[in-house]
Simulated scan of single mutants.
Amino acid sequence: MDNAALIVIDVQQGFEDPVWGERDNPGAEANIGRLVDAWSQAARPIVLVRHDSVSPGSPLAAGAPGNAFKDVADVPHELLVTKQVNSAFYGEPDLHGWLTARGIRQLVICGIQTNMCVETTARMAGNLGYDVTVALDATHTFDLEGPGGTRLTAAELARATAANLQGGGFARVVSTADVLAP
């Protein structure tokens, strides 16, 4: 659709901090850049989402150097949503209201972290009735430890997100090339 919005989630300097651990998909930022360039050239709406962490010492804390966008996401945009939780739909200003007011029903989502803010935002968007596409290779995440010392790699988490989103009917999960194909 001509007015499909690109939602660029949390592409912030703070995710370069070693505190996050091992990441997957070293090509994520290049693919995010390809999407941003295509949306800019087509004059389609771009929404930037920034996580303003309230956790003490977080590299994503508001005012910290890590809160700034990486170069690939520091671009002209129609809306900046700031949030303190996983979903961009619980940020300021109201993303759903902004999209609704503009008649935007189709979203393409990319950003950081695949299994956290990207997945949560995509799930909520699907529940709100949006036509959602996630460009999986334009996301990345980090290894994560769960209960009982279970540790999943970033790649395993990304695969689980893809299965959750597409298998659960929340979104189509595709590549950047698929999104940009004529």
Rank of each mutant, 00 (worst) to 15 (best):
L157T: 04
I46P: 00
Q41M: 12
S87C: 07
S58A: 00
V36G: 00
T153A: 01
G103L: 15
D10T: 13
A62T: 07
D52N: 13
R102N: 10
L165F: 15
R34F: 04
G14F: 06
N25R: 10
G129D: 14
N25K: 07
W39V: 09
I104M: 13
H51G: 03
D52Y: 06
T100E: 15
A160D: 08
G91N: 04
F15N: 05
G27Y: 01
R123G: 09
S55W: 00
V36L: 01
C117S: 14
T161L: 03
G91F: 02
N115G: 10
G63I: 13
D71R: 05
I7F: 06
V19P: 12
I109S: 01
V179R: 04
I104K: 12
Y130E: 08
A62P: 01
G27P: 00
P45C: 11
V54A: 14
A162P: 10
A162V: 11
G168R: 03
V72M: 09
G149K: 12
V85K: 12
V49G: 07
A61G: 14
H140F: 14
L180A: 05
T114W: 05
A88E: 06
E92T: 15
V54K: 15
H77M: 12
R151S: 13
R159E: 15
A4E: 13
D131I: 01
V11D: 03
E92Q: 14
L136K: 05
A42Q: 12
D94P: 12
C110T: 08
V47R: 02
G148W: 09
D74Y: 09
A171R: 00
N67Y: 08
V81M: 11
F142T: 06
G129F: 13
A68P: 04
V36T: 03
R34Y: 06
G21Q: 12
Q12A: 08
S175C: 06
A101T: 15
R34D: 04
G167Y: 11
E78P: 02
A4V: 08
M116T: 08
N25G: 07
F170D: 08
L128S: 06
T139D: 03
D178T: 13
Q41F: 09
G111K: 01
Q41N: 14
M1P: 12
D143M: 02
T161E: 02
P76G: 15
I32K: 04
A177W: 01
W20D: 08
Y90R: 13
N164W: 02
T114A: 13
E156L: 10
P93C: 08
P182G: 07
P56H: 11
A61W: 09
G63D: 13
A162M: 12
Q166H: 00
Q41L: 14
D17M: 05
V108Q: 03
R23D: 04
G57E: 10
V179P: 04
R123P: 09
A181V: 03
V47L: 06
G66C: 10
A177H: 04
E156F: 08
S53R: 04
G103A: 15
I46C: 03
Q166L: 00
E22D: 15
P45A: 11
G149F: 12
F69K: 05
D131A: 08
P93F: 05
P45E: 10
C117P: 01
T176F: 07
V173D: 01
